[in-house]
Design a protein around this nucleic acid. Structure first.
Lengths: 180, 180, 180, 180
DNA sequence: AATGAATGAGTATTCATTCAT
DNA sequence: AATGAATGAATACTCATTCAT
């Protein structure tokens, strides 16, 4: 599965051939089918693996958010950093689950929904003003995470902490100079 | 090309078969090769078409931004709306160029660079504070546009204007209540 | 036809495409079919053209052979030179008729038969001894002409006269030193 | 490979279809590609097989020529007979390598060179006179072998021994009556 | 648990040829 | 006399998958 993940992440679904996977694994093609029902099946397994890790991390992030006594910015930033860390530690299956799979849309939708719930709670707690559509904000956050992961994190240009700090600050305070 | 765009957008590159394109076009396979060198070639043509439209729109957006005397928020919002409108009017080739193609990364990088330049100018003009990395902001904006296009615009849930208004406000002022 | 001859000679039957012929001729494909029934047909026409020229030349050679009063070697050599000259002056159709076509075998068989008749006559006139099979000699002569045309004449290494002199001497006197 | 050789020899490269080869072999098309990289590849393999056999035989012929104590004519005749026997025993790959392939010219050139070397040696030993160009003689011998193989040997009209005897005598003593 | 050997079903591409104008 | 536009029929090659051992 590691080898498959690597190749799927590298070449995409169609351009990854079973023959190449088994060659790198030093087994034969029938052996592959001993362990996986089909090419789709192993791909789906990798997606599910990613989903599970993502779900776990999101759960974790919610908990850690409640526990901490840090400032609002730091708390949110920490939560987002956890997501980036997940992507960093599981680049290959993240590529598959979050970018290559057809489930990606659903996974992101789920993630956005989660974020929206959190935001709603925070609005109710009076942290945020409420004159923007929270579903848009949530979706925007997902888009930002997604794209920064690809262009900054996986490119090795930024750490999870840098990224989460910057985007949290952006999302909280915006770009406008205070004196404007 | 319209038919090809439709099918590529719907099924992706590999799962779009020439036989299906020509069937819907009511011509035979050799006819296809009369007009396009290969499957790759027509795909690339569609990408290039999208690139051209995007470049033109970005150019347009820069000009209109300079001319207008509207408020900062409205000016930026208008620019972003133009991009969303492009995606709305050209959903299929946008899907191909912005999501399906291998050039997508490069196209987005280009777009982010463009946005970064604009931001840099605005920072110099004193509109924005400068304690965030502008390349991250630019990348974030691309991510937001990309993801909102997919989940809100193309889902028919929001108009270009709504989206651009909301995300401009978000990016300018952030989520924090003024009195926080 | 000139253009077709050139391309057939250069690329062979299968690798010569009608599309290439008409492109070089600056006409369209339907125009080709206005003048030739099919690809096979024009190929056959070129073969027939070669056949006609070859027949004419062989006829000529027989006549000239009777008229001349030169020595035996010179007479035979002249006849063979005429054949080489034909190949030299009509390289392209000769390539087609003598090397590329499926009629080539038949054409050569015909040529060998002609030569055999001549040899038989000369044997009867007492010029040659008769302890070798004349059909083999005739066939050998064809083989020699064929191969020297390809390797020496068309390679520009030898003239028709040089070739015919050398092979006539060889066929008449052999390689053995006189004092052996 | 036997079946492929048969079909290539019979129909030529282009008119031999993989589908026909595999049909006669009672396997499917993918099975073909399990053993051969492409149509060109199997064709080349057959050519190489012929080349190898030819080289071996030529080597053999040179050795046997040195050892034997037989008369000059018999020795040369035996050598040539060995070549004819090769063609007889390997008709199909000989057809491919010597007549159908694009390597044929090179193979024959090589063979002619070999023969020329032998002749040069024999001239130096004083057996032959030297007033003819030996490269022409060598090329002529190749032409004779080539053509007699096609018209006499493979037609079943002559045996290797008959052919080699006759052409050796021809090349050594010529056609002229001794008393001429 | 593993594999050597095989295949069903596709899939892009080519090329001689023709039809309507 | 000429052509723009189209096609019928092939054809080499690929790849996920399976069967017998």
């Amino acid at each position: 599965m590691k080898i498959a993940a690597k190749q799927f992440a590298l070449y995409g679904f169609h351009d990854t051939k079973i023959s190449m996977i088994v060659k790198e694994a030093n087994v034969t093609q029938p052996t592959f089918y001993l362990y996986f029902k089909s090419k789709e099946a192993i791909f789906q397994e990798l997606i599910d693996l990613f989903k599970a890790k993502l779900d776990m991390r999101v759960e974790q992030s919610r908990l850690s958010s409640g526990i901490e006594a840090a400032g609002l910015l730091q708390r949110i930033s920490n939560n987002i950093a956890l997501i980036f860390q997940l992507f960093q530690e599981n680049e290959q299956i993240a590529r598959i689950g979050f970018f290559l799979s057809e489930d990606a849309i659903e996974i992101k939708k789920q993630m956005a929904k989660q974020i929206e719930e959190n935001l709603t709670a925070e609005v109710e707690e009076g942290y945020f003003h409420s004159n923007v559509d929270l579903s848009i904000i949530a979706s925007a956050i997902v888009g930002v995470i997604e794209h920064l992961t690809l262009t900054k994190l996986w490119a090795g240009l930024k750490t999870p902490e840098e990224l989460s700090q910057d985007i949290t600050r952006l999302f909280l305070y915006g770009l406008i100079r205070e004196d404007n």
